[in-house]
């Protein structure tokens, strides 16, 4: 194709919207054509300037707090809204990077549940007394829950792992009670939620692989009638490791 025909497509090319095949052909052309390459560079420069000029307006801090107050009266909604926006952004990023858009297929219900768990996680760690039973000994923590929640569970031996149990508390998620355990790995706290798999939490799908929800990594699975959700701002790898430990203890 002649240069002239390519020229009309350079912006589409820079927008990343050409078909993969046209993209390859144009790439090849650019390697051999200094004129078109110069054109591309100049367009890139103009874009950069447009982007800089185009982001000139910032909301004032007064206005920000005004809107914050406005949506603050519906805190649950705003959290969900913010959460959905965050996952939407992530979905766009994933889509843009060519990864199959997983989040687009996720139900809003699931996102709401994750947002509530995120809420619990953040609120608990931010509070003065994050745990009600402060112990690294699973033999102390497990019996503490007896009579407080309607089920029992097993916790793993951590002696040869990097994880430490910090303690636990009773958590409430949409009218049902469950266990909220806090683990630590290299200064990162991880929440483990255990609820009967018949309650609201059951609508969380299984994800044996840790995946990202906002800035957190999450794994979720059902085992022995209970649903486990492992949640934290640590690496997917850590979430996986702790999940396997919990799974093997659950089997015992």
């Amino acid at each position: 194709m002649a240069c002239e025909q390519w020229r009309s497509q350079l912006d589409t090319y820079l927008d990343g919207e050409l078909s993969a095949e046209s993209m390859r052909t144009l790439d090849a052309h650019l390697r051999t054509c200094p004129d078109c390459t110069a054109d591309v560079l100049s367009r890139v420069q103009l874009r950069r300037s447009v982007k800089a000029a185009g982001t000139r307006f910032r909301p004032s801090s007064e206005f920000r707090s005004k809107v914050q107050k406005q949506i603050g009266t519906k805190r649950r909604w705003s959290w969900n809204l913010g959460w959905t926006l965050a996952t939407a952004t992530l979905a766009i990023l994933l889509l843009a990077s060519g990864i199959n858009n997983y989040f687009a297929k996720q139900g809003l219900r699931e996102q709401q549940l994750y947002s509530e768990l995120a809420d619990l996680h953040v609120a608990t760690l931010g509070s003065a007394n994050p745990v009600d039973v402060l112990s690294s000994d699973r033999h102390t923590v497990k019996p503490w829950f007896q009579g407080k929640i309607p089920f029992t569970f097993n916790l793993p031996e951590l002696q040869n792992s990097e994880f430490t149990l910090l303690g636990g508390r009773v958590a409430y998620l949409e009218q049902s009670s469950g266990a909220h355990l806090i683990y630590q790995v290299r200064k990162h706290e991880i929440s483990v939620f255990i609820f009967p798999d018949t309650t609201a939490i059951a609508s969380l799908g299984d994800s044996s692989k840790a995946r990202q929800q906002q800035t957190f990594n999450v794994a979720s699975w059902a085992q022995g009638g209970l649903r486990y959700v492992v949640f934290g701002d640590t690496s997917a790898d850590d979430i996986q490791k702790l999940s396997s430990l919990l799974k093997s203890a659950g089997h015992a």
Partner: peptide, 9 residues
């Protein structure tokens, strides 16, 4: 919300 600044802009 993460879009607040962009929406305002």
């Amino acid at each position: 919300c993460v879009f607040f600044d962009q929406l305002y802009n």
